[in-house]
Write a protein that binds this DNA or RNA. Structure first.
Lengths: 204, 204
DNA sequence: ACCTGAACACCGTTCAAGT
DNA sequence: ACCTGAACACCGTTCAAGT
């Protein structure tokens, strides 16, 4: 298994990422420290600087990985419902919330307080846009079929994104007075149904 | 103007709260420090400890004030539309988002990463519940009039809360690719309209 | 690509002793 | 209800000198 013998780790970069996520899972993002990660991994306190120029870069690396996973998750959900635009939108929404709840550490980093805003990192901006694009495409398709109302596609996508982001964040932060994941899934289904109804051109 | 002459401040507690909010507005919540606040106010680095036992308590005090303001804002919006349940709900939603955008520092503290979850502070829990209750009441009224669909009131309230929270947070964090406050208001109107339509029992 | 170890300027928090 | 000043254990980050 070991590719190198001279040092403690074969792939310190990977271990740093894992340890950071596990730390955030157990504690929180505020208490996360590079020194703490190094300590837990048994390496010197400046070993991480061989892989990440600073703490912010570590968080950005996690964000990029997270948005890439999210994009893939949303794309799969979208592909599963090629015919019914309303069901497709709901499936994307539920998949989004499920990703967030099941990958809380990633999600917190992706949307946590950053020193600089998203635009400062083009690679992050790029993959975040790609995830957003899955939603935009689903809505555009529904509009073309005249299943969804005529409104700027991007605006409607922002509405949908906001809803699932709100559910996800409040659920992760335990501010919904419901804790078991069954209830959250139920809420996700109701939420996505409400918004897909709200976007619908058809009477009920 | 000065009520006390013996020391530098008449009301240091108030000034600490103001300085903290102004700091968060200009920088961010991560870089906020008690020592920095004391420095900016020209008092010793442990003077704040006369008013707040620790940093967390300062953030909780700000949160409580924020939720109290939010509750009042939502209640006013609700009162302005006594007859039309749908318009009332939309007005509450728009008022929520406007509060968040216009009071970004408060809102970030209210929903930022806390060391302990909300439940650890009963006073905070209480006032947050009161704000949430405005939304619950508005939905319940609409359901009684059979304007809104039959679903658990709390679940529908969570859906609405999630939507406006999502819009607010993404707007504050500048992740919606729109910056001017006019566009955000427009988005708020579309978002609340979509969800009030989604909750509606009536055909369009 | 790591190590040790020192260094600097920052934290939160707690003292002790003052006014 | 503040002050000064020391102290402790922590940070992020940057060195210098090693393997």
């Amino acid at each position: 298994m070991k590719e190198k013998e001279a040092y403690h780790h074969g792939d310190l970069e990977q271990k740093i990422l894992e340890e950071a996520l596990s730390w955030i899972e157990k504690e929180n993002i505020v208490s996360l420290s590079l020194r703490g990660i190094a300590r837990n991994l048994g390496v010197s306190h400046n070993a991480p600087y061989r892989h990440f120029p600073d703490k912010e870069s570590l968080l950005i690396a996690i964000s990029i990985k997270g948005f890439s996973q999210l994009r893939q998750t949303l794309q799969q959900a979208s592909n599963n419902h090629p015919d019914d635009a309303q069901k497709r939108l709901e499936a994307i929404g539920v998949a989004y919330i499920e990703y967030a709840v099941q990958n809380q550490a990633y999600y917190r980093v992706m949307f946590g307080e950053r020193q600089k805003n998203v635009r400062s990192c083009p690679a992050l901006q790029q993959v975040a846009n790609e995830a957003f694009a899955v939603l935009v495409n689903a809505i555009k398709t529904g509009q073309t079929k005249e299943v969804f109302i005529e409104e700027t596609t991007e605006q409607l996508a922002r509405v949908c994104w906001s809803l699932v982001h709100g559910v996800s964040m409040l659920a992760i932060d335990d501010q919904l007075m419901i804790s078991d994941s069954d209830s959250i899934l139920e809420l996700a289904q109701i939420a996505t149904k409400v918004v897909s109804q709200g976007l619908s051109t058809r009477a009920k």
